[in-house]
């Protein structure tokens, strides 16, 4: 441990010096206001149309879903999803709780939900992809490995630093989303009730286990689940970073995989084997919100298992290759 701490310090400073982390910050600071503005426009629009009453808006949303359900042109998969949505929205309406209460916390919750499959992995990748490969493309890896430190310790220190930044990125994304959107929507809503625990069986929703969690608790759980997904993405990015020499190539590899995953996500229902891919399982927050999983029969333990296997395999390959390979040129 005593020899690990200076290594970690060294690696942290390298990440900071390479300015990658500031790029991440910049992306967040630029993009979140864009989303906030769009959300504000939608909210304004709805308020005008529905006489300032969210119940009317929600009722109209429910009626609109009911109307699409009657159409033969709507695919069965979408209908299933909408039937579940419908029952959940009706549940909110019957309990007189606005599912989209306009405030900073609601914005953050929605933003994080949408960020989990692509946005946050991308930010994590910005750090993960070059943490090893840049050492090789610049040639500094030789200096690093000629030190009297075991190779696995070098790599472990890099992994620990990556974990640190993964945690920071998730927290920072939520924090910035809250702070920036709060300027428009207000900073309240921490104790606003959220329903969770919708048990799905087919298109039926079982309300027996539904319970209320305060918004802050929901966000904590949500961020925790997002963090787990991010750690797995970080592990895979880490592996690719070890395997591929160029930083650009390692970013492209993982980004292509993630984008392919988000395309596959919508088609997965007709290809059940896709549920063993890690990209399909990244949206752990769906289990919290009660959104149906893309493939029938997926559950939280299943997704956690799949993600854990991918993550551990990634780390194993990374350490194995890094400790054994010859460093040439």
């Amino acid at each position: 441990m005593s020899s690990l701490l200076p290594l970690i310090q060294n690696e942290t400073i390298k990440v900071l010096k390479k300015k990658r982390f500031y790029v991440v910050l910049l992306i967040l600071i630029v993009l979140i206001p864009v989303f906030t503005y769009a959300q504000m426009k939608i909210a304004q629009n709805n308020r005008e149309k529905f006489n300032q009453d969210w119940r009317l808006e929600l009722q109209q949303r429910i009626t609109d879903i009911q109307n699409t359900l009657g159409s033969d042109r709507v695919p069965e998969e979408w209908k299933k999803y909408r039937r579940i949505m419908l029952q959940q929205l009706q549940y909110y309406l019957d309990h007189d709780v606005n599912p989209d209460e306009p405030n900073g916390v609601t914005f953050t919750r929605t933003f994080m939900d949408n960020a989990v499959t692509l946005f946050i992995p991308l930010l994590v990748m910005a750090i993960a992809s070059d943490i090893v490969s840049s050492e090789r493309s610049t040639g500094t890896i030789k200096m690093l490995l000629t030190r009297p430190v075991r190779r696995w310790k070098v790599l472990l220190s890099k992994w620990i630093v990556l974990m640190m930044f993964t945690g920071i990125i998730v927290i920072l994304t939520a924090l910035l989303a809250y702070l920036i959107s709060g300027m428009v929507f207000g900073y309240g809503g921490w104790t606003f009730p959220i329903f969770t625990g919708f048990a799905l069986s087919g298109t039926e929703v079982n309300f027996d286990t539904v319970h209320i969690v305060p918004s802050w608790m929901y966000m904590l759980m949500q961020c925790g689940l997002i963090w787990f997904s991010s750690v797995v993405v970080a592990a895979l990015g880490f592996m690719i970073s070890v395997l591929v020499r160029s930083t650009a190539a390692s970013i492209v590899t993982l980004m292509a995989t993630l984008i392919a995953g988000s395309i596959l996500y919508n088609m997965a229902s007709s290809w059940p084997t896709a549920k063993y891919l890690f990209m399909i399982n990244l949206k752990l927050t769906d289990y919290l919100a009660g959104t149906p999983a893309p493939v029938e029969g997926m559950s939280l333990p299943f997704s956690l298992g799949v993600l854990a296997v991918w993550g551990i395999a990634g780390l194993f390959v990374a350490f194995r290759v890094f400790t054994k390979q010859d460093i040439l040129n």
């Binding site: 945690g167 904590l220 759980m221 949500q222 961020c223 925790g224 963090w227 919290l288």
Partner: peptide, 15 residues
């Protein structure tokens, strides 16, 4: 951050 998120993750899975 990691500690907070790990706690959140635990709560999330438990819930």
């Amino acid at each position: 951050s990691t500690l907070v998120l790990a706690v959140g993750f635990g709560f999330g899975v438990a819930d």
